[in-house]
Computed example of a mutant assay.
Amino acid sequence: MYQRFDLLAPVHKGLRHALGGLVFQAGSLNVNNDGELRRFAEEFADIVDILESHSRDEDAHVHHLYERFAPETAAKLEAEHETLEAELGELQGLLDKALRAPEERGPTWYILQRKLTRFTTAYFSHLEREEGEAAEALWANLDDAQLKEVSVRIRSSIPPATMMIFLRYMLPALTFNERYDMLSGMKRFAPPEAYQAVRELAERRLRPEDWAELAAALDTVEQGA
């Protein structure tokens, strides 16, 4: 809902960016190049990390709200979580097989690409359910201050290393205003070293012109903490 606090949009943008890029890489990767395959496996592991973190955070901080305000939607989301978790395990198994059995990489990778595309399609549909009927239930029963409290609890529960993986994919996927709100808030309230780490990540991940615009805006913000 426009002009309401959106608990889900920024992280969902990052997850879409991550999975979309992974599908692209899987489709263009030279499976006979061990270096390319290892880099793909490393990125796959990072994306599994944030997918699992997102699922844990929902279970710990949001699912009970869905059960309270939209029990049918909660049941659908829980069933989808179980299916997606199983499919992610299948993908990991195929990737492991490609790494350990070079002679079977061709057919293994063909299956992995197709399953990854189907998984991503299903995952995007799952995100849409969260952003649609689930979010509507939250907006109908909680005000923005309450939703922001949930957001703070979620962010506080994410390990720093996992948060940096989230941000690696989120920052390029956000609008200028979303990036500015995030980093200006960090500059005011986060420890200086945490803000500096995210600022450096943004510089690496954004297009030069996007970074220049953001940096100029952030330089007008007084640092706190």
Rank of each mutant, 00 (worst) to 15 (best):
residue 1 M to F: 08
residue 3 Q to P: 07
residue 6 D to L: 06
residue 7 L to N: 12
residue 8 L to D: 10
residue 11 V to Y: 15
residue 13 K to M: 08
residue 17 H to C: 12
residue 18 A to Q: 08
residue 22 L to N: 02
residue 26 A to R: 06
residue 31 V to M: 09
residue 35 G to N: 15
residue 44 F to N: 05
residue 53 S to G: 15
residue 62 V to Q: 07
residue 64 H to Q: 14
residue 67 E to I: 13
residue 70 A to C: 11
residue 72 E to T: 10
residue 74 A to W: 08
residue 75 A to M: 14
residue 75 A to I: 03
residue 78 E to Q: 14
residue 78 E to K: 15
residue 82 E to G: 05
residue 87 E to A: 15
residue 90 E to Y: 01
residue 99 L to G: 01
residue 103 E to C: 05
residue 108 T to R: 05
residue 109 W to T: 11
residue 109 W to H: 11
residue 110 Y to H: 13
residue 116 L to F: 11
residue 117 T to N: 13
residue 118 R to F: 13
residue 118 R to S: 09
residue 119 F to E: 05
residue 125 S to P: 03
residue 128 E to S: 10
residue 129 R to I: 07
residue 130 E to Y: 15
residue 132 G to C: 09
residue 141 N to Q: 01
residue 142 L to Q: 06
residue 143 D to P: 11
residue 145 A to W: 09
residue 145 A to E: 08
residue 148 K to R: 13
residue 151 S to A: 10
residue 159 P to K: 04
residue 163 M to I: 12
residue 169 Y to K: 00
residue 170 M to C: 00
residue 172 P to L: 05
residue 174 L to Q: 08
residue 174 L to D: 03
residue 176 F to Y: 12
residue 179 R to V: 04
residue 181 D to L: 11
residue 181 D to G: 00
residue 184 S to E: 03
residue 189 F to P: 03
residue 189 F to N: 07
residue 193 E to T: 02
residue 198 V to Q: 00
residue 198 V to A: 02
residue 199 R to K: 04
residue 205 R to A: 12
residue 212 A to N: 03
residue 212 A to L: 13
residue 214 L to A: 03
residue 215 A to H: 07
residue 216 A to K: 12
residue 216 A to I: 04
residue 221 V to P: 02
residue 221 V to K: 09
residue 223 Q to R: 04
residue 224 G to P: 02
